[in-house]
Design a protein around this nucleic acid. Sequence first.
DNA 1: TTTCAACACGAAAACGTTTTCGCAAATAAT
DNA 2: ATTATTTGCGAAAACGTTTTCGTGTTGAAA
Lengths: 357, 357
Amino acid sequence: MKKKITLKQIARELDVSISTVSKALSGSKEISEDTTQKIQAFAKLYNYKPNNIALSLKNRKTKTIGILIPEIVHHFFSTVIRGIEKVANRRGYNVIVGLSNESFTKEIINMELLANGSIDGFILSISKETLLKQDYHHFNATISQGIPIVMFDRVVNEVACDKVIVDDFNGALKAVNKLIENGCKNIALLTTMDYVSVGRLRTQGYLKALENHKIFANSDLILKIDDSLNVENHIEILETEIHNFLKINPTIDGIFAVNELYAVTAMKVARKLGYKIPDDIQVIGFTDGVLSKHATPSLTTVSQHGEKIGEQSANLLIDRLEANDIENDKYFIEDDSKADYIKMVIETEIIERESTK
Amino acid sequence: MKKKITLKQIARELDVSISTVSKALSGSKEISEDTTQKIQAFAKLYNYKPNNIALSLKNRKTKTIGILIPEIVHHFFSTVIRGIEKVANRRGYNVIVGLSNESFTKEIINMELLANGSIDGFILSISKETLLKQDYHHFNATISQGIPIVMFDRVVNEVACDKVIVDDFNGALKAVNKLIENGCKNIALLTTMDYVSVGRLRTQGYLKALENHKIFANSDLILKIDDSLNVENHIEILETEIHNFLKINPTIDGIFAVNELYAVTAMKVARKLGYKIPDDIQVIGFTDGVLSKHATPSLTTVSQHGEKIGEQSANLLIDRLEANDIENDKYFIEDDSKADYIKMVIETEIIERESTK
DNA sequence: TTTCAACACGAAAACGTTTTCGCAAATAAT
DNA sequence: ATTATTTGCGAAAACGTTTTCGTGTTGAAA
């Protein structure tokens, strides 16, 4: 077992001081050609690599980003992680992932754990429970400790930080517009309980599209589904809810769903009821995941560009981290209270597939 | 901006030494009741939490696990991560995620980056490129540095470490058995090029099942699909390949696919060709992901229990890490070469849905 | 009164770096 | 020959902990 070699060991072996080794390895002009050569050769031979932890302690920065998301087995979130990882890697950062599991407490614990020196900044999406409780003190506490946060997708005005969001309103608007233009007269909305702002915005987009076309918004055509904790098993309930909904409202000829699961389930149910898609009913979903791509018929969706969201979030965070560096170097620490934070909106895009005409 | 408080600051403020503060906070009997109270109160007030990096440096362990996977936007891998995170959290560890993107070089870079003190051990699944190259020196180098590795799913005999694998052989065997018992006479196999051992094992299970039932294995019924780099766009190619395959072999009445994408695509194509599922053709896929669950008809699959794989991997790794601790404490470092490594096999389970009778 | 524990605390080392400063020797300028 | 400057290197501090080993004070035992 060859443990990693340290500066001290090299120094001892070559009979020079630690400082000399350090300088030689960084190519300092202070050290003579000769010794530099000798030390570098030795270091290469023993595959010396500086210890990251020691560097982190010395520099008081870890070059690590903490990602905190509600759930990882989820297409959208994993694409976001991929985006974050991509730019983080490129810019010399690592990512450490925490899962809140939609729980307020786990969110707090995870943050406190990582905020104790393990990471330089956070990229996160708020858990449902936190949104329900509307308790955001842990975010503000973290920020006031000097640890910047970037929130994505599920964000909240009460916290002053950079944000990257999907243009949920316009995404929904565009989707419903398309349904209308495609000739749909009675467009249903399949949505969740709207304490998650995201759902609320999509509903607003739906309503606005109808209004723009002078279509009366019939509240009977809006089905709100309770997406409580045990989502996994609720698939049958989901199906029967949609089934009954379609039975009661036989005039529906277009469906806009706020996620792809609702959309494909609606297609499934509709087909069982004898509807042809897209001939009798056209369907558009939000979120462009595997399901949409491989459903039969494949689903027209509003793509959220998760990877792009991740990239932008990472860039925003790292930009701020490195800006802070400069400020600190200048011994000029600006009053953060008037720092202007960026809210970046990522445009959606409609991916047309077989579920619309 | 309230930066985190340190022992030194508390010491200065309360006019005691750093050692006293440290001891008081850990409840040492050395310190008087009075001072202990005073110090603890002060620490609580200022929300003191020890700096993780400093602790890591001192203890020479980070309580962090490095996960290295080929791809994160992938149902199986994200369930594994979820499993790892779950037990890691419970046992006091964090996880830091690296993506190899199926690239040999990125795998190496990521490992070297994290091996410099950032993590105590690795849990990883080998990238395709590495498997092709059959170059495993970086794994062995890491291990001989004293950093344990646990490999899952895509493992390799050439590296001496703990492994957690799916019982691919028996999973395939059971699946094909079921097709046979359900009356299928001409069972096709949809597989990939088999440099990934996983695919090879599934093929062997398929062949064994046929053999057990004295069915002649017709090589015409095996379709090997080239799953090269640009998988995303290959969906049309996949469809046409399967289309032609089914046209040429009209007797096929059962399909076993080594992943769910091939399975649902096969269903899609078959239905376009006028087959009824499961009446004319029954289909079973490997990997129980979202697609299987929500396809129409829903797909019977061999579940790999990704979360369980993650949990077991994490337990194996942490067990070994903490066993090493004890050995080191004893100043008795065993010769690792004769350490016996565990290969844990996770049994598969068939989830029956609508694509089989 | 002297001796000895017990008590309460501080100094210092260690983990592995980087960096500032100081200092001797060698070279250059006067 | 004397002073000034460069060159090449080492000592030490610092990052924030924990822990070992002193050490001075107190109260009790001799």
